[in-house]
Design a protein around this nucleic acid. Structure first.
Lengths: 343, 343
DNA sequence: GGCAAATATCGAAACGTTTTTATATGGAGC
DNA sequence: GCTCCATATAAAAACGTTTCGATATTTGCC
């Protein structure tokens, strides 16, 4: 297990009998080195198992070939799927990904962003947990940023999101079509653009059909399982329980399911349940879960694509206008939603 | 949105009216600078929002403060929980984490390991998808490695694992205690130490109770949902279906559940199901899922702890013997397992 | 055949730090 | 008052690359 010495370009150059700059040119495929010397260098590189020090390379060239990804909750498979898209697209383009979990804490998000800056990453993908702090980041010097999933309000930034408004609108229309009149919406924290847009979609659909979007319709959660559970218990035990529940993310849906199970309330017979975000278990559940499926993997891929455009501004478009990429989601109708019982 | 210039230590030194080395000493809390100059420097640092270039720092000092984590399947919440433990413990100690997903491909695992080496990470946590290729890594120059979850066979390496043998043993004993005699075991790929150990635990328990561990008892999956699904369909439609199924990971359990649902076979009335690895939905499922819960978060934390010991060999224990940390798991008995029907 | 231009290679500077070594300053000891 | 040592600061070297400019060699052209 004796560690071999760590070789540098100098060592390779010596072994190959050429200068350091020639080794560099070969390693970087500059295409300006004769076939003869190229062969020599490549042989030496292989013999020494040489791999260039990315830190030194980054220091000199100003490009680290690292991009940072900051997500609010890595426990949520939604963000994991985004991560998969990000990583696949990143390595395809020769980048490594530094993943950071804010754990829904502003302080941690800030700390991660600072750390990424200190590493001099080439770009940052940010699914913010706190848009205010995120805006702060925008005004700082540093790497280009692409917002993912959630956008700081009224900011003109590069971002990849889904059409939350439209998706919610269609979802509520679907529930209304089933005859539901008492629909409870369980939202995430209202600082998030995702929550706001989704709630607006609900409001529009209800108002269009002359259903009151009452105070009691909207219930404030925090996108985590527990909040769904607690709100679900309250809601289902209230004097006038809803006939349908729409949770604005997948984690809270799981909380609702727990509440339903605990209270032994049959779904969809007594109450329908619909969720933003699909899950890999949603189809297998009893009942299978009606859900809005976002193109998560695609979001990740597109975000990297957009980021790389900012990093490598080809074609003189150095100060291009920020782009908003809006993707469509689809409603997967399954077993947890049914016609409302006529009261 | 005008980008500020990027400041270096030289700029800070100029503004504070001191030398670069003084700035460095202050930034690194060397404690050898007078109170007066320290104040000046700190003021300048704040004014310029200076943060040291970690790349340059790493180049000179040989410490990058990055650790790499390579997992075989980031879609599996099991590894995500480990990741959470790793990241929390890492930032607590001032490290950043570079996460890589091998996607169960040897080539990708190798590529990631090479990339991490090129970044000159201070250490690597590896949950291998391929132990053979992993062994290769061991013999290379480079950063210290801690194996996680799965260990190359017969290798004396630093690792953090669970007692797979014992957990499986107890699980099968439990099923036998319920009266099950035809128990099917669905394992992962047999190259994994986890699979091997778990299968051995099963074998031991069965042999002890004079149950034949027949050819037909063991079914080869690949730890992914689909393999569980396909094996489940085969198994449940066979002329002599088992009365209990034990899947050796959580993803395959989900596949079995899909098969059960599709074939409308009631669980646990007709067949009991037990799974290695818990899931956040397991308790809410109908039926709730009996599962072996591994201390995933703890595994991540301990792995980082062990790695940092190798990185910072305090107390002259530079060439310490590799340590194996073996953690216990617990059997969560829930609704998917019941007494066997007497044939 | 001689000169300009193109080409292949090399040497050295630069990137932003840490670290080692040198220099200046002050106080203690006699 | 002088030396000696400790201390605070500064200067310079080093880390391993990329890149710029210089040099040597070949090629093209008249």
């Amino acid at each position: 297990m004796a560690k071999r010495p760590k070789y540098t370009m100098r060592d390779v150059a010596r072994l190959a009998g050429v200068s350091i700059s020639t080794v560099s040119a070969v390693v970087n495929n500059k295409g300006i080195v004769s076939a003869e010397l190229t062969a020599k260098v490549e042989k030496a590189v292989k013999a020494m198992a040489f791999s260039p020090n990315e830190g030194a390379r980054g220091l000199r060239s100003g490009r680290t070939h690292i991009i940072g990804l900051v997500v609010p909750d890595i426990s949520n498979p939604f963000f994991v799927e985004i991560l998969r898209g990000v990583e696949d697209e990143a390595i395809k383009n020769g980048y490594e990904v530094m993943v950071c979990n804010s754990n829904d804490q502003t302080a941690l998000q800030t700390r991660h962003l600072n750390a990424l800056h200190a590493q001099r990453v080439d770009g940052i993908l940010l699914a913010p947990t706190d848009s205010y702090a995120a805006r702060e980041v925008l005004t700082r010097d540093g790497a280009p940023i692409v917002f993912v999933d959630c956008v700081p309000m009224k900011a003109n930034v590069n971002c990849v999101v889904t059409d939350n408004y439209q998706a919610s609108y269609e979802a509520i229309r679907y529930l209304i079509g089933l005859g539901h009149r008492k629909i409870a919406v369980i939202s995430g924290r209202p600082v998030h653009s995702t929550s706001i847009d989704r709630v607006e979609g609900c409001r529009k659909a209800m108002q269009e059909t002359h259903l009151p979007f009452r105070e009691e319709s909207l219930h404030q959660g925090d996108s985590h399982i527990d909040s769904g559970y607690r709100l679900g218990l309250n809601l289902l035990q209230s004097p006038e329980p809803p006939t349908a529940i729409f949770t604005l993310n997948n984690r809270m849906a799981l909380g609702i399911l727990r509440a339903l199970r605990e209270l032994r309330i049959p779904c969809p017979e007594h109450v329908s349940l619909m969720s933003f975000d699909d899950s890999d278990w949603a189809e297998v559940f009893s009942p299978s879960l009606t859900a809005i499926q976002q193109p998560t993997y695609e979001i990740g891929k597109r975000a990297v694509g957009l980021l790389l455009q900012s990093i490598q501004p080809g074609e003189e478009e150095c100060e291009a206008e920020p782009r908003q990429i809006v993707l469509k989601s689809s409603l997967l109708i399954r077993g947890s939603t049914a016609n409302a019982i006529q009261a």
